[in-house]
Amino acid sequence: MKSYRPRTKKGQVTEFGAIFSILICFVFLPLINLSFMPVRYMVAQGVFSELSRRLGHCEKYTEAQALMKNEKWWSESLAMCGVTLNKPQLELLVTTGDGARSAVFSGGNKLPDEWLPGGANSVPTPCIYSIGLSADCTIAALYQGPFAPAVIKVSAHSQWENLSKDPTSHYYFINE
């Protein structure tokens, strides 16, 4: 005859403790570990937004390039958060006033006349100029272990503010 023996509290704790340990080790800790990735992504996005805002407020395009190259706070902040940057790129995005057409100029290429303020594409409504920053970011979990780091393209755009001309060269500051 099969008899049922009531479980002792000690046994229940042992059984529950094991399950709890498994839960913590294999569910909670990996989840917490992985949850650092979206947080780091948000931090990277925030840093990119702030940097692009500052770049958009520069006097000249070359000044924006120099700012991106020389300022260390943003790359150091990202490095501190475990985000590795690959080939950060600066680009100018010009969109017609009606939003129908747009053009991207990167690698220090100058804007052709038709895309400049007052150019053919700025009639009848002026074009919208923005400066963009993008990079492939390698975002790792807190403890890498078996989790491969994710490579995510992070980008941010900010309006280019200085649409005037340089009295010295007569070029638009955006092309200098």
Partner: peptide
């Protein structure tokens, strides 16, 4: 004050505070 260059008047704009 920013001068007009080739009939282009400098618009008011936001800029870096350290300038």
């Amino acid at each position: 004050l920013p001068a007009p260059v080739d009939n282009t008047i400098a618009p008011a704009r936001v800029m870096l505070p350290n300038r």
